[in-house]
Write a protein that binds this DNA or RNA. Structure first.
Length: 461
RNA sequence: GUGGGCGUAGCUCAGCUGGUUAGAGUACCGGAUUGUGAUUCCGGUUGUCGGGGGUUCGAAUCCCCUCGCUCACCCCA
């Protein structure tokens, strides 16, 4: 078999990018990181592999089905079950991390984490087996004020405003509110409540009629009157700050759980406004449940107003006790997660982001092989001014050099030929503007900086 | 895990009811008086028609099996 007969390919469900797209993606991660840090979150990384026993504490059937186990060849040969597995989210590793370093951390512990996670799902459009999650969480010891729940929307607002991908809305709900409501309807049992919630969570996806039919159908067998009350409740959407408060008021007192949920939402709403989030950017949505079993209070989803089909681009919530499997200490927390790979992929599909320019700003051409030292010197000058610069090292037809710069996404080409050397100038061509000019060597750095800045400003618009 | 769709050049695809050496666009490479890319013109490379078996004088085309991809469902901590 010839050496070249193996088809180069990646497994389905991974996102591998060409350099200019990678630059765009990294720009997105940079923005997220910058905003997380701006709000005072500290960086943490954890290993991509964890001990299986640590990872699989929740051992739901579904979880286990989607976990990739890891085994060395040696261990594989000896049989036995893999003791390592790839993390499938960042929350479980966080719980382990906090429990392990409990006595070295300061609480409330505010961490951010931007790393890849792994899920063995069947590949599907816009869903990945390897993807980035960008998480922040605030973990308290014994107690964590509800006020932190209001900080999350403030961070979300800051991130997505700066990502500049169009209007968006942060939708809020509260698990206690939902639980209380269902208890009043006589749907008190946990498992059954979960099933109903799971169905209700699909409201925006499947439509009201489909959900109503399912709830009244044989699987659930709920009376039409009860279903009507459920549908009425879960279709609540607030249209402004005062309306949101009115929606909560309209619920009445109900049972204690419902009342507590409403009180929490009220406080969160009030503080979200105080954080300066415009009221157009947050709303109540009583159908949001989130699949996660461990959410106990506030839950969030964020949607792009002009692209509802994209679904939630950032979600999270409050949990009572993060690390009960690893420590006796009570560690309540609240957090959010941005699925960056999926988000990037969808934004690209929706044409909301394009291919970036190269991070390389200047290509110095080679006119005469003998003058290479002069080109290197010029590049050195630009580099020490902080301008990323590449030098044409091999002799090549000038047209090829321009072609290369164009394809590589390098915007400026610096030409230093005999004419320029004689005159003490450099010719700069802006490939995007199809424009070129001569600039005195002494003014080169200053001029290029202005050009680069202008180019960046144009791009941002 | 359950069900549907699709496999022809790097990519997007054409190839009628079986019939000569399997095509187009795009991309890529080279050229159009050696200091200017993308645009134009000319030329060139590219395929075990996913794989195996069967029917036939003859299969990219029909049948069976298999593999891969893909979409929906399940689920999404």
């Amino acid at each position: 078999m010839p050496m070249s007969s193996i088809k180069p390919r990646t497994m389905p469900g991974v996102l591998e990018l060409l350099p200019l797209d990678q630059i765009a993606f990294q720009g997105m991660l940079d923005t997220i990181r910058r905003n997380y840090e701006r709000f005072g979150f500290l960086p943490v990384e954890t290993p991509v592999m964890e001990f299986s026993e640590v990872l699989l504490t929740k051992s739901g059937g579904e979880t286990e089905r989607q976990v990739y186990f890891v085994q060395s060849t040696g261990a594989l040969e000896q049989g036995g079950t893999p003791e390592l597995a790839l993390r499938f989210d960042l929350t479980v590793p966080l719980a382990r991390y906090v429990a392990e370093h409990e006595h070295e951390l300061s609480f409330p512990f505010r961490r951010y984490q931007i790393q890849r996670v792994y899920r063995g799902e069947r590949a599907q459009r816009g869903r990945f087996r390897e993807f980035y999650q960008c998480d922040i969480d605030v973990i308290g010891k014994d107690h964590l004020s509800i006020r932190y729940d209001a900080e999350m929307p403030a961070v979300i607002h800051s991130v997505f405003r700066e990502l500049d991908i169009g209007p968006f809305q942060i939708q809020l709900n509260n698990r206690k509110l939902i639980r209380g409501f269902f208890e009043d309807l006589g749907i008190a049992e946990g498992e059954r409540q979960m099933l109903v919630l799971r169905e209700v969570d699909k409201l925006d996806k499947r439509g009201a009629d489909a959900v109503r039919a399912t709830l009244q159908g044989e699987g659930f067998g709920l009376p039409a009157e009860v279903v009507a009350r459920i549908m009425d409740f879960v279709s609540t959407r607030s249209t402004g700050h005062d309306h949101a408060l009115a929606c909560l008021e309209r619920l009445g007192r109900g049972n204690q759980t419902l009342a507590q949920g409403a009180d929490e939402l009220r406080e969160v709403l009030t503080l979200v406004r105080a954080f300066g989030v415009p009221e157009t950017h947050y709303a109540l949505n009583f159908s949001i449940a989130r699949g996660l079993d461990y959410y106990t209070g506030t839950v969030y989803e964020t949607h792009l107003t002009d692209f509802p089909q994209i679904g939630s681009i950032c979600s999270g919530g409050r949990y009572d006790n993060l690390a009960s499997h690893y420590t006796k200490s009570k560690l309540p927390g609240v957090g959010i997660s941005i699925g960056a790979t999926r988000l990037f992929w969808q934004l690209r599909e929706a044409k909301l982001i394009g291919t970036a320019d190269s991070t390389v700003q200047v290509l110095v051409t080679q006119m005469d092989e003998a003058d290479l030292p002069k080109y290197l010197e010029l590049a050195g000058l630009l580099r020490s001014a902080g301008i990323p610069t590449e030098v044409q090292m091999e002799p090549r037809k000038l047209a090829k050099q321009f072609h290369y710069a164009d394809r590589a996404g390098i915007r400026f080409v610096a030409v230093l030929g005999t004419d320029e050397l004689a005159k003490g100038v450099v010719t700069i061509k802006d490939l995007r503007k199809q424009d070129q000019f001569e600039v005195a060597r002494a003014d080169l750095v200053k001029t290029l900086r202005v050009e680069i800045e202008q180019a960046a400003a144009m791009k941002g618009r």
